[in-house]
Amino acid sequence: MTSTLPAVAIPGQRLGPIASFSAGPGTHVQNANIYASIAGPVLVDAHPSSKTKSTLSVSRTALRNPSAAPSSSTPPPPTTTTTTTSGPQPPKPNKPRYNTLPAVDSVVLARVTRVQKRQATVSILVVLDDSVSSHPLNPTVSASDNDNIEAILSSAANPENHSSSDELRFQALIRREDVRAVEKDRVVMDEMFRVGDIVRGSVISLGDQSFYYLTTARNDLGVVMARSEAGNMMFPVSWKDMRDPVGGGSELRKVARPF
């Protein structure tokens, strides 16, 4: 049966009967048949127990092999697609993802745009897929999201675009009570985040029309990158301190545990 499946499907292409497969992301069901709803490689996720049907899905990601170190100079080969995040990753039967939007439990990287007494406003830069957070040291499986260098290089805005670029990103709030798990009532937002910090957070709710809600109340969540008041990139020294390597001063943050 699988042999009749195309390697690559286009929207509207019939993939197989619902009697033999179950429909995964990138597909839809019509008249007891599974059809592709996006263009991409067809994946068959065979379950170990032969009783359940295999899941058919169309991947929105191409598993590429990015260069190992982030600072090395070989950008991945250019592509013409500009997909965003995560699809179903074969290794683990994760919760299927039908879109590239932030969902509950997604881990995201976001930039702090505003800090108030009761909450911090952030704009979401990257939705990390589950496989990234579970295998953080293996960049080869993290072909994810917004990861088309060519698209990033071309789109990253002129100054005019810059001011409005936050409006093109999904906005989220970190409420004071979601910053950390302990001593919640003693949280001072100014000592947790500063504008410009890059924060790793987990989505707890899709929120209202304009904001998602994030939490950083886990050891691996919190500020991952920050500049000191002098403008230098700081490194973490403890769960609540980061240090400026040039000036030597330290500043308070809700620091994510470095890997």
Partner: peptide, 22 residues
């Protein structure tokens, strides 16, 4: 239309295979 979309999807999938081979 189907040809154009398929061609771009194949390019995309080709990248994937290339990536795995590398």
């Amino acid at each position: 239309l189907a040809e154009a979309v398929k061609e771009s999807a194949e390019r995309f999938a080709g990248l994937m295979l290339g990536g795995n081979a590398a």
